[in-house]
Each structure stands twice: as C-alpha cells, then as structure tokens.
Design a protein around this nucleic acid. Structure first.
Lengths: 207, 207
DNA sequence: GTATCCGGATACCGTGCAGTACGCGACCGT
DNA sequence: ACGGTCGCGTACTGCACGGTATCCGGATAC
C-alpha cells in the first residue's frame, strides 16, 4: 500500500531513469566502458534499449550524469573536511587524504573514471563535457584552498589552482598505479602528499 | 641492386614483422586501442590478417613488444642523464624532467600507453605482463636512484623504490591531465617534482 | 628435381552491438 | 470518454570485427 500506487507519467519516467542510473552504476563498474553494452545496462534494470534511448542519448551522456552526482558529493566532503580549524598545511593534506579514502573506498568507480578519461582523449565532444566538470570541481577545490590560506594569513608561492591541478594529477596517477599493482603500498599517496606539501611550505618559507 | 634481392624465409618474415610493428605504431597511435582493428594495422603495412596472426597472437602481445622497445630506450636515457655529477636532488629531478620531455615529445605514445594501462585493469593476463615490464623499469630507476644517493653519501628517509613509484604515478597522472586539458601549464610537472623533491630533502635533513 | 614446409592470402562464420522504425497500451487533457 | 500523447517494448538492419579453416606458391631440404 504505497502512498502513490498510481504514478503520473513524469514520475514513472523519473523512476525508470533512476533505475537505469543505478543499474548503470553497477553494470559499468563491473564490466567497464567497453564491455557493458546498452542492452546490458537496460536489462539489469529490467528494461530494454527503448527505455534507455528514451532517457539518455548515449553511454557518455549517462556517465556525465553519474559524474555530476559524484562530484557534488566530493565537493561537499571537501568543504566539510576543511571547515575545522587545523593548520593550513594539514588541511591541504587532508583534502588529499580524503581523495585517497574516496579512491580506495570506491575502486570500481575509480577504474571507470579512468576509462572514461582515456576515452575522452579520443572523443572531442565528450572530452569537452568531461573537462567542464573537472574544471568546476578543481576550481571549487582551489577556492577552498585559497580561502583557508587567506584565513591562515599565508601567501602561497604557487597559485592554489596549480596546487589543486597537481593534487588531482597525483591522485589519478596513484589511482592507476593501485589498480594495476595491488602490491602498491597503502601509504604511497599519503607519503607523496606529505612530501609535496612539505616542499610547498619549505618553499614558501624560503621565499 | 640491393645486396640481397633474394631473402631467405626467416629474413622475409622478420621484414614483415618489422613492417607490422611500424604500422602498428602509427595506426595504434592514430586510432587508439579500440578503433584500430587488426585489419587496419595489417592493411597499413600492406598485408592482411593472415600475416598478422602468423606473427602475433593478439593486439596485446604486439603492444608488449612495442613496450619493450620503448622501455629499453627510456632506461638508457635515464642512465645517461644521471651519469653526470650534479647534486643528487637535481639528478632525481632531472629524471623526472626527462620523463616530462618524453611525455610531451611523444604525446601519441603516451595516450596509447594510458589506454593499454586502463585496458590492463580489466584483463588479468595482460595486466600481469604489463606489470612485469613496469616493475622492471621501475626497479631499474630505483637502482639508479639508490646508486646515486650512495655516491652522494645520502641516506634517504624514503626507500628509492617508493620514490620511483611515486615519480611514475605523478608522471602518469600529469600525462592524463595534459591529454585531457591542453591548457595545462607546461611547468606543472616540473614544479610538482621540484616541490616533491624539496619535501624529500627537507624531510631527510630533519630526520 | 621432387617432396615438403610454411608464411601469408582469402574467404568465411559467428557474434555482439548501436541505432532505428514502429507498434502498443497506459496516461492525459478536454 | 475519447483522441492524442508518449514512454517503452519489439523487431529488425547493418556493420565491424575477431578468429579460423583452407589454400597457394615460393622457399627449403635432400
């Protein structure tokens, strides 16, 4: 006896769209960009291709929707992590460590993200869409870094945007490393970030 | 009037194998792992699938051969770069900068390498083969780092193997970044490495 | 010189997939 | 209540590709 056994058309479609998204998350994670067909995704949700094409233009577009959700979560998490009043360098490192946690906590997503990233490398239109989102997240992070730095009265020698670019690059590189080589030491990213930020602050002091 | 207008069988096959490798380098770079079919590669070399399968088991195997050639070059270059007698930290950074030069100088190869890397993520057998090669290169670099450090009388706080792992991870992350976003500042990797190695030496001094 | 071998060509099969055209049936406005 | 609307299912097309079985012709061995 649900509250609305009868759904309006829009609700219906929204529901199937949700179902498709959820199945896409699972199926894409499991089989990957190349091996997961549209039939697979729709089938997993209990629908057919018809439903898929009625809701999404392509696998790429679907992924971008998933991406928006993930990035929104990510930004929230970062905002919260840096809202406590630790030392600024610790905060920057925490952002990185949070990345690490996110990466290790969702290996499947990570793999998928890298797949679509390399995919974007060869598909101009998709590349632009992906980049727009990456930029948004990155500048969001940069803003936070800049704000925290200002609060701490520090003038960094290297622009926050560049720092967040580097952090992202490191994160993605480490992610790939860990996917390829399970013997990769857990502390790799942590140590790497510590050294990096140590270098940053040393540099700032010498300047 | 070439010296050997008549080729023995082995020479013939070696020649077609070379031709296939060369075409593979070009075609794979241009179309990528997914879009370059075996027909394409063989066709570009003026052969057919028959020739391909007579010489290689699969696209993966062919790539591994290409990889061996590249890695051998890489290791030579690193050996030479560190053979001069600069400061150890500069040397480490030089290795990184050489990586950068290699990456930017051969963007196509870089892209291809990342494609096969993510591919390896989902194909266990290939992953192992790729990893074996990566490990070989990485430990080669680690050996060089360790040797130079010893010559300079420095005891690093972080094992060279870990350092080379990190450098690789950074390089790959930056590579992806630059492939996706052409507005990525050129000095990104250089600055990143400088900060990282600055952090390393600061840490070593404090220890 | 003859039998054999084998690198490569050719032809073919099976498959898996992205799209698409169209039909149905449930919802919708009036 | 009725004709339109539209989300979704169905069925089909077309194709690209990996892999294999078979054949040819020149090299090779004796």
């Amino acid at each position: 006896m649900s509250a609305t056994p009868r759904l309006t058309r829009k609700e219906q479609q929204a529901a199937t769209r949700e179902a498709l998204l959820e199945s896409a998350t699972r199926v894409l994670a499991e089989k990957g960009l190349q091996r997961a067909s549209i039939d697979d995704i729709a089938g997993d949700a209990g629908f057919t291709k018809g439903a898929f094409y009625a809701n999404f233009k392509s696998k790429e577009e679907l992924f971008l929707v998933m991406l928006d959700l993930h990035f929104a979560e990510r930004l929230d998490a970062i905002e919260q992590l840096t809202s406590n009043h630790d030392a600024i360098t610790d905060q920057a490192e925490q952002v990185g460590l949070d990345f690490l946690a996110a990466l290790r906590g969702d290996e499947e997503w990570c793999r998928l993200f890298l797949e679509f990233s390399t995919h974007a490398t060869r598909h101009e239109e998709f590349r632009e869409q992906l980049m727009a989102r990456r930029d948004a997240l990155r500048s969001g992070v940069a803003d936070i870094l800049a704000r925290r730095a200002a609060e701490a009265g520090i003038t960094p020698t290297i622009p926050p945007d560049l720092v967040s670019r580097m952090t992202f690059a490191m994160a993605h590189g480490v992610a790939l490393e860990q996917l390829l080589d399970e013997s990769t030491p857990d502390e790799l990213f942590g140590t790497m970030l510590r050294m990096f930020f140590l270098g940053l602050s040393t540099d700032a002091q010498n300047a």
